[in-house]
Nucleic acid binder design. Structure first.
Length: 457
RNA sequence: GUGGUUGUAGCUCAGCUGGUUAGAGCGCUGGAUUGUGGUUCCAGAGGUCGCCGGUUCGAACCCGGUCUUCCACCCCA
């Protein structure tokens, strides 16, 4: 009895057309990464559980795919632990490995393990799949690709400036105009929480603030109240909820609000440095905007926070994110090494480009010429020409079977192959080829030289 | 993880208040056309109605469970 095949929830197969388009995006990103001086690394699909666990917060731990130990793993669990039937206690005993959840933590682990082999500052890029045990939605999968570029070992804010340029360069080269690079600073968020006396509720505060565009000022207020932040405290920062203005105006308002917070003012300074860099150096197609409500990845970011929003007409979550983390490698024992990096969400960029019809025609080009098969003798003649064409850089194929012409022509038609060559006994005698241009239906009987020229043209 | 939603031919979908052998369009295969595709015409193949169980004389249709899809929340690329 044959079983009905299927793939796990949130995973996908990719057909030839999709893979070609995905490769186009990856290649574009990779080109820019290398132009900016990043070097490639790869890390294993799975890590030791304790490398990953606890690095992404409580929510993150839940979303990490754990790998069941091999062998008779249950017999090694102490009976009293097993009897508790507490998944949180039992899991670490029976799942010592877990699938990679992002590329940043494995990179931090890599830096610490290879600290004596790498020269700081170290700029690396990494394009690999990651896995999350999330519930799938549009643009949200359980297996997806991240394309990360990070630099460790430099505190310079010029890195942040370059990452903004890198975002701009990639999206410009993908012909995706109108993306918004949102920037914020964790120190500003911390300063705000400090000023309103809610430093202990920093995460609740920022998570609520992050929802502003979704639930509105009243929604944010309600959520903050619900988390135990007082009415008077909220009133102090309420101007932020409704504030619109230029980047400079936003920073002015923040300077007032944060005048008593050293940390907050430091954050403003950092933000200003980055913005100043773009005063006489413009971006190509992206817009850089300060967004105080941006609070992603709070678990390890300590300075700048980035997020890239797709053009407004596309309903899609962010297509990229990143930020600075002053002490990421500290958890693995290497102190005082700062890192900053960004990530591109390949799968979401794909959906956006598809929706906007931005894949260039050239990425879909496949076989350019198909030689029909009229039998073994004729094929012998054809394959020689096929070989010559391939050596000339032309994608050429010989139909493998001596099937009916209708079938072979149909195949070329469905595959959208622009040229077909017919070479039967007559052509062989004359040392010619009959080239058919599928689009127009025109045919020419010509020699090899002209054949190659016409296909190239 | 919480709440909702979806599933019928390869694809997009019909299928009435439960009632014989479950339909259409497109696609597919063959033929009209033995060296000529796209158009046309003719014929044909293809479904245990997501899966398991229940109610019923009788279930694609009602009920329960489960898987899947999509959506909202949570969170995130």
């Amino acid at each position: 009895m044959a079983q009905k095949p299927g793939i796990p929830k949130g995973t996908r197969d990719f057909g030839p057309e999709e893979v070609i388009k995905r490769n186009y995006i990856i290649q574009t990103i990779r080109n820019q990464f290398e132009l900016f001086g990043f070097l490639p690394i790869e890390t294993p699909s799975f890590e030791n559980s304790d490398t990953l666990m606890g690095k992404y917060g409580e929510e993150g731990d839940r979303l990490i795919f754990k790998i069941l130990n091999s062998g008779d793993f249950l017999s090694k669990v102490r009976p009293e632990v097993y009897e508790l039937k507490d998944a949180a206690k039992l899991a670490p005993k029976i799942t010592e490995k877990a699938l990679r959840y992002d590329l940043t933590v494995p990179f931090a682990r890599y830096v610490v393990m290879h600290q004596n082999e790498i020269d700081l500052p170290f700029k690396r890029y990494q394009i690999q799949p990651v896995w999350r045990a999330d519930r799938p939605q549009k643009g949200r999968f359980r297996e997806f690709y991240q394309c990360d570029a990070d630099v460790v070992g430099s505190d310079s804010l010029w890195q942040e400036v370059e990452f903004v340029q890198l975002y701009d360069a990639v999206f410009t080269n993908l012909n995706l105009q109108g993306v918004t690079i949102k920037i914020n600073n964790r120190k500003i968020l911390a300063g705000l929480a400090e000023v309103i006396g809610a430093s202990d509720k920093l995460i609740d505060f920022t998570v609520a603030l992050d929802k502003l565009d979704k639930i509105g000022p009243d929604g944010v207020r309600d959520e903050m109240l619900g988390k135990g932040i007082s009415e008077t405290a909220i009133a102090k920062v309420a101007p932020l909820f409704t504030f619109t203005g230029s980047n400079t105006e936003k920073l002015e308002l923040l300077s007032d609000l944060l005048s008593s917070s050293a940390e907050g003012l430091k954050g403003i300074e950092e933000l200003k440095f980055i913005l100043n860099a773009f005063e006489d150096m413009s971006l190509q197609t992206a817009t850089l905007t300060v967004d105080i409500t941006l609070a992603r990845g709070l678990n390890y970011y300590t300075g700048a926070i980035f997020e890239v929003a797709a053009p407004e007409q596309v309903k899609m979550g962010s297509v990229g994110g990143g930020g600075r983390y002053d002490d990421l490698t500290g958890i693995f024992g290497l102190k005082g090494v700062s890192g900053v990096g960004i990530s591109f969400g390949l799968d979401r960029i794909y959906l956006v480009l598809e929706e906007l019809g931005l894949f260039p025609d050239s990425v879909q080009r496949n076989t350019q010429v198909l030689f029909l098969n009229f039998g073994d003798e004729e094929s012998k003649y054809a394959i020689k020409a096929v070989t010559r064409l391939r050596r000339a850089g032309i994608k050429a194929e010989l139909y493998p079977d001596g099937a009916k012409m209708k079938k072979q022509m149909n195949f070329a038609n469905k595959r959208a192959i622009p040229f077909v060559v017919l070479a039967g006994t007559q052509e062989i005698t004359d040392q010619q080829f009959t080239l058919k241009e599928m689009h127009t239906g025109q045919q020419f009987t010509i020699d090899y030289r002209e054949l190659e020229e016409r296909i190239k043209a």
